[in-house]
Amino acid sequence: LVRYRTISKIPQITLNFVDLKGDPFLASPTSDREIIAPKIKERTHNVTEKVTQVLSLGADVLPEYKLQAPRIHRWTILHYSPFKAVWDWLILLLVIYTAVFTPYSAAFLLKETEEGPPATECGYACQPLAVVDLIVDIMFIVDILINFRTTYVNANEEVVSHPGRIAVHYFKGWFLIDMVAAIPFDLLIFGSGSEELIGLLKTARLLRLVRVARKLDRYSEYGAAVLFLLMCTFALIAHWLACIWYAIGNMEQPHMDSRIGWLHNLGDQIGKPYNSSGLGGPSIKDKYVTALYFTFSSLTSVGFGNVSPNTNSEKIFSICVMLIGSLMYASIFGNVSAIIQRLYSGTARYHTQMLRVREFIRFHQIPNPLRQRLEEYFQHAWSYTNGIDMNAVLKGFPECLQADICLHLNRSLLQHCKPFRGATKGCLRALAMKFKTTHAPPGDTLVHAGDLLTALYFISRGSIEILRGDVVVAILGKNDIFGEPLNLYARPGKSNGDVRALTYCDLHKIHR
């Protein structure tokens, strides 16, 4: 019993810090008490220290592992850092350059016999395009090294910054494609005289377009951006097909006994025919423009016929181009109408809503002055909100995010209106959640004399007048207030005048 009563005193000691020596009952000389009392004092002292730490809000209350900052290894790049964003855009520009100039170089340097010394005699450094290609190869190699040090988000939505895990993730992902696209074939085969082989191998750079397509997928929600990307894709495919079309004609031209190829026909049409040795002929500019003209006309199913396939190889390629053109029509131009419709969806919704308003007016036989006010209010409210119901949009977000959005939407009023000066951010967040926005066209009466005042109004834009009878008592403008002081009276009061809008007004109100 003594032991039980001794232990039962522990909660009292913990909360009230009572010393055991003052209790005459606990001072009985028993061996059990002498053993338990020192333990009680020690526990009391420890609990006292913990309570003191909690009340003082000291940093040592938290466990040590929670006080440590997340460790980022040296030379690790955050995937959302500004440097990584700028670097990704730079790589994107280099990939676009590669997609345009690599097929052009591979096709127009394929057994090209233009006048001038061969590239091997001039030297590697004197070729501007080769120098640019070398810079692109170096940048792609540097990009691989950067990807080995860039964080990523795993399946659990955690940012991984450990170098080993980053390397394994990159090896399992895009490393092989990036490595093949970054191989400097110019340096590996330079001086061997195989410019045709170098041009063909350099087309491996186009593998990076797969990554670019995935990154550009984030802009699919913007109709104008999608339309622009589709047109660029169409032009890029036409450019690639033009390079292939020229390569076919250029390879067949020296081996044909009869002059029936499209390059021969082009030379005869523009007065620059090929001679018996295969030299001469149109310039590279004429060849490229004509090839691009043929691919565009074939892809769009126009086909004027002034550039036509004559050999079997050219006919087979033309059939493939027609098939590609039909697929592009289905996948690209078939979506253009939907994209344009999405661009004008706001206008369509406006006309639909206006039609419903006019049908309501016609069905209920609203008189002319009231009908005009109804239409003007709808037009003004639509121009202010673009038909978007803010309350319906915010309803799907958590309250903390709703408060931040409301604070942002009402920031101008909260910053410049005098009653809100000096208020804490928590108070402003709470008030912003209570605001209701209303609009009024010129001549609209917001409050009639004798109406119950259940709200306090803040003028965000425009001006109003307060009338008693036919006498203008006051004219209020931006950041002015009218209405009933909230919670100042037990019952809502009545208006002693009319409140009429002089201009288009936007008002925020808080109800009782």
Score class of each variant (00 low, 15 high):
Pro273His: 01
Gln68Ala: 13
Lys285Glu: 11
Asn335Thr: 03
Ile183Leu: 09
Thr295Cys: 13
Phe175Gly: 05
Arg211Gln: 09
Gly334Ile: 03
Met251Ser: 10
Gly116Pro: 13
Ile96Trp: 01
Thr437Asp: 07
Ser297Thr: 11
Tyr222Trp: 08
Asn410Lys: 03
Gln415Tyr: 11
Arg356Ser: 15
Val131Ser: 01
Glu115Met: 04
Ile146Arg: 01
Leu299Pro: 01
Thr347Ala: 10
Ser277Gly: 04
Leu227Ile: 14
Cys126Asn: 01
Thr203Gln: 01
His169Gln: 11
Trp240Met: 03
Ala235Pro: 01
Ser412Pro: 11
Cys122Met: 01
Arg71Ile: 14
Cys126His: 01
Asp88Tyr: 01
Pro70Glu: 14
Pro118Asp: 03
Asn386Gly: 12
His439Val: 13
Ile183Val: 10
Arg362Lys: 13
Gly261Asn: 08
Gly334Gln: 08
Leu67Thr: 13
Val131Gln: 05
Glu121Thr: 14
Trp174Glu: 01
Glu375Val: 10
Tyr274Met: 01
Ile135Val: 05
Leu188Pro: 08
Arg74Gln: 09
Ile138Glu: 01
Gly191Val: 03
Ile324Lys: 01
Val95Phe: 01
Val210Leu: 04
Glu376Cys: 11
Pro309Tyr: 01
His351Cys: 03
Thr438Phe: 12
Val132Ile: 05
Val307Ala: 01
Leu197Ile: 11
Thr233Leu: 14
Arg208Gln: 09
Arg371Gly: 07
Arg429Ser: 04
Tyr246Pro: 01
Asp88Phe: 01
Ser308Val: 04
Ser81Gly: 12
Asp257Glu: 11
Glu314Ala: 02
Ile77Gln: 01
Arg362Asn: 07
Gly191Pro: 11
Arg214Asn: 09
Pro163Met: 05
Leu394Met: 09
Leu236Tyr: 01
Phe296Ala: 01
Asn410Trp: 01
Leu343Tyr: 12
Phe435Ile: 10
Glu158Asp: 09
Arg208Thr: 10
Phe108Arg: 01
Asn156Gly: 13
Lys111Ser: 03
Ala348His: 06
Gln68Phe: 13
Asn312Gln: 01
Ala224Leu: 14
Leu241Trp: 01
Trp174Leu: 05
Asp444Asn: 10
Ser313Ile: 14
Val131Thr: 01
Lys84Met: 01
Tyr350Asn: 01
